[in-house]
Nucleic acid binder design. Structure first.
Lengths: 230, 230
DNA sequence: CCAACCGCTATACACACGAGTAGCCTCCTA
DNA sequence: TAGGAGGCTACTCGTGTGTATAGCGGTTGG
């Protein structure tokens, strides 16, 4: 149940319209507008879902489920660059914008999406490091979290700077975004930014000076557990 | 005139309260709440500023002006890493959150702030490249725009994931953010991410194939068109 | 002295929103 | 074909918002 195409009856239509409306206009979209988008009356929302909050929750769950499904479908589809397996269909665009909006507003779906992306990235990164494609990091999770934060954040900034974002043209927008981001990304990822290692080495020396390592807060850094004065 | 401390008379107090309220609660903060924060009545907003939109516009202008002032004050203060000359005072935190919110919502102040940051970054980057601190890019402006987008976006994501952001503890929040972002940033900037140049070279070859260069739309990519792996 | 002015408050109005209620209308079943 | 259950609509209510108007009180200039 609750897939996209099998039941177009009321509730599902309303839910999809809500997802689309939330993605297009933000989560302040009124129930009336959503109902109008679905071609039904406003009060129907209350009969199917108890409140707007419930509707939002169900939209979140549906979007997350569809994202996972879409991700699984496009797996082994050679991700040319990390975090770039972007959808090209209209539905994929709606999903993406919905998720970006959710992250933007600090919603639960956004947090879940980020955690999902981080877990996926850690796995992917570990594999890539093992295969020698990616240089290792002193804190793999911190690196992945940083990359996820930056990638998603850049998309959110782009989304904010495109107020008249048309969901129909989402693929075009993404294409344009990638066109102007691909070169800097690849340059940064292969050639770095700094010409020498002084900044990094200085920071590493500074961190080594302080006993508590702020970069690796939780996990024990390999085996040298015994700290100095205890 | 129009500095923070000299005139505490009504209008300025209200404007500052609006800035603080917008930063703390978002731009949907009601006029009554702003008035209450300023310790005055609600209708006063209308007498000083015609409407909420006008108030918002004046807040934007004030924030931008203060940001520029704060930036000028802290110039030559050795930016250890690009885009990290962050304020540590409470007022600076308010300014920063206000600007982040403005970028997030696609406001005019946000766009102006981004453009300001890009211009500043281009200048800084050119200088750093000339001094041999930073490796050159095939499209400096695209790289700066990319870095700005990513840096600001990462902060916005962090902001969204911290719903109970206390403006008083802003420096602590930023400190924590930098503590967990510093290592990945420095690693990425000095050691890159990819172990070899294949991805970049493939992309450059692909771009060289198509006549229209999507990454460098306007400017000609100087003279050394036929590049090679050094 | 006083009167015009300005900062400010209190109250009211129009509007949009989410929430809630009653009833029609269709389709499915026996 | 009769009955009933559920999808759906029209309407109403309370609330919160931005906007607007009338009026009070202190300050200042003639």
């Amino acid at each position: 149940m609750s897939t996209a195409q099998d039941d177009l009856t009321g509730r599902a239509r309303l839910r999809d319209a809500a997802i689309e409306g939330f993605a297009a206009q933000g989560f302040d979209e009124s129930l009336r507008a959503i109902a109008a988008r679905a071609g039904v009356s406003a009060g129907l929302v209350r009969h199917h879902f108890g409140s707007k909050e419930n509707l939002r929750a169900e939209c979140d769950a549906t979007v997350l489920e569809r994202y996972r499904k879409l991700k699984v479908d496009s797996i082994n589809a050679e991700p040319s660059v990390m975090f770039s397996q972007l959808p090209s269909s209209r539905e994929g665009g709606i999903l993406m914008v919905y998720i970006l909006r959710s992250v933007r507003d600090g919603g639960a779906a956004g947090r879940a999406f980020l955690e999902n992306l981080v877990a996926e990235g850690i796995e992917f990164s570990a594999d890539a490091v093992a295969r020698g494609l990616v240089v290792p990091s002193r804190n793999e999770e911190a690196r992945v979290r940083h990359l996820v934060r930056q990638s998603v954040g850049a998309l959110i900034v782009q989304l904010g700077m495109w107020p008249d974002l048309a969901l129909d043209d989402f693929e075009g927008v993404m294409e344009r975004f990638y066109a102007e981001s691909m070169l800097p990304t690849l340059e940064l990822y292969t050639e770095g930014l700094f010409a020498d290692r002084t900044y990094l080495d200085q920071y590493l020396a500074f961190v080594a000076g302080t006993e508590t390592t702020p970069a690796a807060p939780a996990e024990e850094t390999s085996s040298h557990h015994g700290k100095s004065k205890e």
